[in-house]
Design a protein around this nucleic acid. Structure first.
Length: 271
DNA sequence: AATCGCGCCTGACGGC
DNA sequence: TGCCGTCAGGCGCGAT
């Protein structure tokens, strides 16, 4: 589910509620997520104060004085802020109860998400250390994508979804960015000009920024931290629009599979 | 080294 | 109504 805009929307939603709050208790109902939730989290999180709420790639970083709780939402995860008496429902795996009578609730039906607890710099965690550039950072530019892509035979869509190159772009925004840039998603990454990578950089930044502005994309189960859906689904041009007309030229949008993922493009506008 | 396909897990939906 | 196959916003891993 969540790509960078949904994770950033979640971060912005929870930050004002949990910043400088002290953890009263943590309740873990299901340990078995993508990785097992460590016992140390339950033992050590209570009485710690949340001093920073940051994001790196699709990971949320809740920092205390001595530790960092790293949260990944996987495919179907969400975080919500609730009153501390609201009963848990199915798939509500973790509650973090805060001193101010609210709780941060982690729900994840498919259990592809993860919670890590680390005393070291979270950026050095094994799951984060090899991540590529943030797409909204200054370093992310045409030169970078061009250099990284030389001699690569993978299709450009898989290339921009590779977190070792570039983080935060998942299946929805990859299709959308390539549409905006006019690039055929099937094209080999190594056979795209620097000029076209310049267009792609602009497109990625534009679509992510706009999606954040609209609170992310809700297709099925994504909810913001207040339970409301994101509204960017209304702004999608091609994703999930097989056979519907291209907003620009009216040609039917095509759906294909690239590396086992559904991909959408306009056969006339993208080449 | 790079690429590809599988598997983790639950739920929704369509066809029969 | 039930059963079965397919699909879903991520991503690590092993085989090639």
């Amino acid at each position: 589910m969540p790509e960078l805009p949904e994770v950033e929307t979640t971060r912005r939603g929870i930050e004002p509620h949990i910043l400088n709050a002290t953890v009263k208790d943590i309740i873990v109902r299901e340990y078995k997520l993508r990785w097992r939730i460590p016992k140390e989290l339950e033992q050590q999180l209570p009485n710690q104060t949340i001093l920073k709420v940051e994001r790196r790639a699709k990971y949320l970083l809740l920092k205390t004085k001595s530790h960092c709780l790293i949260i990944h939402l996987g495919m179907s995860g969400s975080l919500r802020i609730l009153e501390d008496h609201v009963p848990a429902e199915k798939h509500d795996h973790v509650d973090i109860i805060l001193s101010c009578n609210i709780l941060l609730r982690y729900r994840d039906p498919r259990k592809f998400g993860a919670l890590f607890w680390t005393a070291q710099n979270p950026l050095l965690h094994p799951r984060l250390i090899d991540l590529g550039l943030e797409p909204l950072s200054k370093k992310f530019d045409d030169t970078y994508l061009f250099q990284q892509s030389r001699k690569k035979t993978v299709c450009v869509k898989s290339f921009i979804m590779n977190a070792k190159i570039l983080v935060g772009v998942g299946n929805i925004y990859a299709s959308e960015a390539l549409y905006l840039a006019g690039i055929d998603p099937r094209r080999a990454a190594g056979r795209i000009s620097k000029k076209r990578y310049g267009l792609l950089v602009q497109a990625v930044q534009k679509v992510l920024t706009k999606a954040i502005k609209y609170g992310g994309t809700t297709l099925r189960d994504f909810t913001k931290s207040d339970g409301a859906p994101g509204y960017f689904a209304q702004k999608l041009n091609v994703y999930d629009k097989n056979d519907l007309p291209c907003p620009s030229c009216n040609q039917a949008i095509k759906q294909i599979k690239l590396n086992q993922r559904s991909s959408y493009y306009c056969p006339k506008c993208q080449s």
